[in-house]
Structure formats: structure tokens, C-alpha cells
């Protein structure tokens, strides 16, 4: 934390009841009675970036709820970040509708599987989903891993499971993805960025 030399103080009811401010005409009792009729409303302002096109416009997201108290929060408004040197507070028709994307009815909420030949989805737990997928991966890798090519050169690759990566994912996701895929020996990798 980079504290500057500013000092803090608290404005409390006791302070406002002091004699000096009263000398200036402040009537503490009435003022404090008013305070008790008020309720505090809390919103959070968070800086983020529009995920659509590569202008990567800065946005400010307003949400309800108290993050420090871990209460459930909901986005109430998104606007352009006036400080971002590129978009300077503006948003296009897509960016202006970001809240509807985040709150889309088609958001996935839990893992599902569609079994071979089945005609519907089935809700499953994360553990079951990840266990089953990892088993598939290992079985395919063990069966098809190529340690050496036909000329005897060590190649250590696994071509029979492919991975298409998002270009809406953040850099950190991209980095972890490529690190893990290469360690597994995967070479059938491509990204949305190509098209």
C-alpha cells in the first residue's frame, strides 16, 4: 500500500456536538436526529475491460453488496471508464449492453454431461466431471502418445486430443493453458485468434 502523508479523522456524532461548530450556528440535536432517519446504501465500483472487440475499452462496473462481508453481489450498471486513454468513457452498442451478457439466461451454472447417444443433458458434480474427463485424457494419451517418430527421433507428442483456446480468456488463463497443454505433449492446439 502506498500511503501518502494524509491523515485521517472520524466525523462522529460526538464531534458534531462540540461547542465550536455550535457557535457557528450548528444545532447538533436536530442534525443527529436526522442522521438516524437515514440508511446507508452501498455499491462497489470496479475497473474492468469490455471483453468484446480488441479496442479493449475500459469499463467501470457497479455492483451491489459488500465484498468485504462476502455478501452476494449483483451488477447494477456498467459504463465506459472515462480515464481509459482509448475509449475515454465511451462504449459502443455492444459494450453498453454488457450487463445483459453477464446476466444472460443462457449462462451455464453447473457441469453437465451428454452421454454417448443420449438426447438430453444431465447435471453432474464438478468432481465427477473432472474425474471422467481426466480419465478420458489419460486413456487417450497413453494409447496414442508418440515418443519417437519412425526415424527414431524423440518427439514426445500427443496428437489425438485437440484443444481450441478462447481469445476472450485473459493472458493468465492463456499462459496456464499453453503451459499445461505442452507439458502433456499436446500439439493439436489452435485458437479463435486465427479466425
Amino acid at each position: 500500500m502506498n500511503m501518502n502523508r494524509r491523515q485521517f479523522f472520524k466525523v462522529c456524532s460526538a464531534g458534531l456536538g462540540g461547542s465550536s461548530i455550535a457557535l457557528m450556528g450548528f444545532s447538533p440535536n436536530a442534525a443527529l436526529a436526522e442522521v438516524r432517519t437515514f440508511k446507508l446504501a452501498r455499491a462497489t465500483e470496479t475497473r474492468n475491460i469490455c471483453p468484446y472487440c480488441s479496442v479493449s475499452c475500459g469499463v467501470l462496473i457497479y455492483s451491489t453488496g459488500d465484498k468485504s462481508k462476502n455478501s452476494q453481489s449483483e451488477i447494477i450498471h456498467i459504463e465506459g471508464d472515462p480515464d481509459n486513454p482509448v475509449n475515454r468513457g465511451t462504449l459502443c452498442p455492444k459494450g453498453a449492453g454488457l450487463r445483459d451478457m453477464i446476466q444472460s439466461q443462457n449462462r451455464l451454472k453447473w457441469p453437465e454431461v451428454r452421454e454417448a447417444g443420449a438426447s438430453e443433458w444431465k447435471k453432474i458434480s464438478w468432481n465427477e466431471a473432472l474425474d471422467r474427463i481426466a480419465k478420458h485424457m489419460k486413456a487417450d494419451r497413453d494409447a496414442n502418445f508418440v515418443a519417437q517418430n519412425k526415424d527414431g527421433v524423440t518427439v514426445n507428442r500427443w496428437t489425438t486430443t485437440g484443444f481450441l483456446a478462447s481469445s476472450a480468456a485473459q493472458n493468465e488463463t492463456g499462459y496456464l493453458t499453453v503451459k499445461m497443454l505442452r507439458a502433456l505433449g499436446m500439439t493439436s492446439i489452435d485458437t479463435q485468434a486465427r479466425i
Binding site: P51, V86, I102, L108, V113
Partner: peptide, 29 residues
């Protein structure tokens, strides 16, 4: 298998715009 992930507003991390500027984002919800 269909696995649900978070969207931009729900994660912290960086994006690089086409002008090669890397900008950090903060999670909102």
C-alpha cells in the same frame, strides 16, 4: 461435457488490446 466458466466481470487478470497494451482488470462479482 459442458463446464461453466466465469466471464470477464467475474475474474481478475489482464487483457492485451490490439495496440499491444496490457491492462489489468479487477473482479466485480
Amino acid at each position: 461435457f459442458r463446464l461453466p466458466t466465469t466471464l470477464f466481470a467475474e475474474t481478475t487478470g489482464s487483457f492485451t488490446n490490439s495496440g499491444r497494451v496490457i491492462q489489468w482488470r479487477w473482479k466485480a462479482v
